[in-house]
Design a protein around this nucleic acid. Structure first.
Lengths: 188, 188
DNA sequence: TTGTTTACTTACTTATAAGTAAGTAATTTT
DNA sequence: AAAATTACTTACTTATAAGTAAGTAAACAA
């Protein structure tokens, strides 16, 4: 097996899971290589530096989110929100992970500039999608809230990211309570 | 200077700031000792292991929060909320720190059991204070919201913790937008 | 079928981390 | 004044981290 492998994809997949579990600074080539049954240098072959790997992990997650956006583009505001909430909740059952943005944000000051830039791009993308969702939903009479969509969107994305984290300390019910209250608050 | 020093207090203070900046796993004895002008072993004298230091930092923050609770006990619900929001916002101006619970939560799976337990105790304390605040405020007709106080409190503490983190990526305005919207949502 | 590229492994370097043992000087206690 | 305690420093150990240089075997291209 010297050509055509899926090692690079496996590195990204496992690297993503590890950052969501333990964060970028605690992520080591050792953990990836041992779990994939390869050597450290094999990772360096695909990603010369840890920074390269980190950037590709975030970029990959952006691409996945863009696919998500397309895939729900035909749905109504309420259904879009439900799908998003569901995909977000998966983190909890999958080893009490947190979302990638939350993980990147709490390690932000330790990240290389290149990673910071990609993370910022990712959060803007997410926030804008949410703003549009709330704006469209309100115009359609599906969502009800005070103030500007941008401010409500800010509350919702930060509450969901924070809830995943807090759930680690006090249990998954905390996340469900947050998600339920956010939906309740959007009703008439 | 061989007796009666305030080195231990300085270690706690700087250690707290460093955890809020870069997180517990990235915190090193080296950074503390160099900034305080002492040697690594001096920290080990006061805190034999990093785990001891970590636990004391969180315990110390709990004690500080308990003092905060007492200090605002005479205020009305709205004033209590304002003081809390203000003290929370300080993190932003102070080198884009995040709150200690948020920092601990995102590194939770890397922490020793002893630290996890103290963090859990801290979050329960904070959440319960918030629940009581919302419950009292609603009975007094100051706050208005749907659902149970516990759920609204969950949203608010997670939104604020998440907002401090997200502000690192997209600017401090994000936190202010979250704080403003949360207050707006509590009005009649 | 020879040469080149791909996808690695082996073996190494350098840096930094937590932690420890032994020594020391000032202070405090007896 | 002597003994003990406090608050360190010096010097060391062990572990783990990212990263690199050189070698190798399979696949593919010419």
């Amino acid at each position: 097996m010297k050509a055509r492998t899926d090692t690079k994809e496996k590195i990204i997949e496992l690297g993503t899971a590890l950052i969501k579990s333990i964060g970028y600074p605690s992520l080591s080539y050792q953990q990836i290589s041992s779990q994939l049954g390869i050597k450290n240098a094999a990772i360096h072959y695909h990603y010369p530096s840890k920074e390269d790997l980190g950037c590709d992990i975030v970029s990959n997650e952006i691409a996945r989110f863009e696919k998500f956006i397309s895939s729900v583009s035909g749905l109504g505001p309420l259904e879009k929100l439900e799908v998003f909430l569901g995909s977000y909740r998966v983190h909890l059952e999958d080893g009490n992970k947190i979302c990638l943005i939350g993980a990147g944000a709490s390690d932000f000051l330790e990240l290389p500039k290149s990673m910071q830039l990609v993370y910022t791009e990712y959060l803007f993308l997410l926030k804008n999608w949410f703003i549009d969702l709330l704006e469209t939903g309100r115009k359609a009479g599906v969502f009800h809230f005070k103030g500007e969509p941008v401010n409500k969107a800010s509350v919702m994305i930060s509450a969901l990211a924070g809830a995943l984290q807090h759930a680690r300390l006090i249990g998954n019910d905390h996340y469900d309570a947050v998600a339920a209250q956010l939906k309740e608050d959007l009703k008439a």
